[in-house]
Design a protein around this nucleic acid. Structure first.
Lengths: 130, 130
DNA sequence: TTTATAAATGCAAATGATTTGCATTTGCAA
DNA sequence: TTGCAAATGCAAATCATTTGCATTTATAAA
């Protein structure tokens, strides 16, 4: 475990605010676009800020099957999503259905399980009627 | 649904053989390296072959959290893995623990679930003793 | 309050996995 | 045997993300 020193800057504050308001995981691009509306910021600054926020455990990151990394506030609760293949809408599951399972698998296999990713994909009720 | 026409070529045959022998998901690089030992082949050919094999449902692909795509024979059974963060060894779970869950979630949310990805990460019993 | 240091930033260039354009070769159906 | 589209090699492009470098700035210590 290593100590990570961080400074408070306007830009990082803005990013943190976006996460606090957001109700879904956000990509670097989404965050960049929101920021661009009100301040001048470079995309690499966004990436660096995101990485420090991940290091300090303020947010978590997850690489989705579409090849894009999504970030969201880390409330220390596992989250999983239903992603619509048509409209890309995202529905957050209320609870992690995997934790028990993970423990079970850990016992069976001898692995110490530290993380898991679970992503469902399909068609949301909205799109299915189109 | 679209008809995909495919030809039998030496190189594609070799790739198919690799998949039949393989006991774990393989990355494009791994396949490329194996092929290079016996034949002359270009990496982009490997990628194109992999993509046609995915299109014809001979193999499936999955993007892992390490940013690399892994391919494996499609036996129409969901598979999930335990990936060791230290030695990168991979253990295949004997069954998909999610199918029931997916049905449940589908009922609750109204989503038609067509796919899911589940990946556990941690430390394998081998590495934990080091 | 001043100062020193390392974190934050912008910009351009690099990276790494994967894809693509183009010219050429080749499998295979007619 | 022939024609066409699929397969291939090669180089260049792509796309998300990272990095090197010079500059700015937050912050802790003097």
């Amino acid at each position: 475990m290593q100590i990570i020193k961080t400074r408070n800057t306007l830009k990082k504050e803005k990013i943190i605010k976006i996460f606090k308001r957001a109700e879904k995981p956000m990509s670097s691009q989404e965050i960049y676009c929101i920021l661009k509306k009100t301040i001048d910021i470079n995309l690499s600054t966004v990436y660096r800020a995101l990485n420090t926020l991940v290091k300090t455990n303020f947010i978590t990151k997850e690489l989705r099957q579409n090849g894009i990394t999504y970030y969201e506030i880390n409330d220390h609760i596992h989250k999983h999503y239903l992603v619509c293949n048509k409209c890309n809408s995202v529905l957050k599951l209320k609870e992690c259905p995997i934790d028990n399972l993970a423990m079970e698998i850990s016992k069976k296999t001898g692995y110490t399980i530290t993380d898991h990713e679970l992503e469902f994909r399909g068609i949301c009720p909205n799109c299915i009627n189109k």
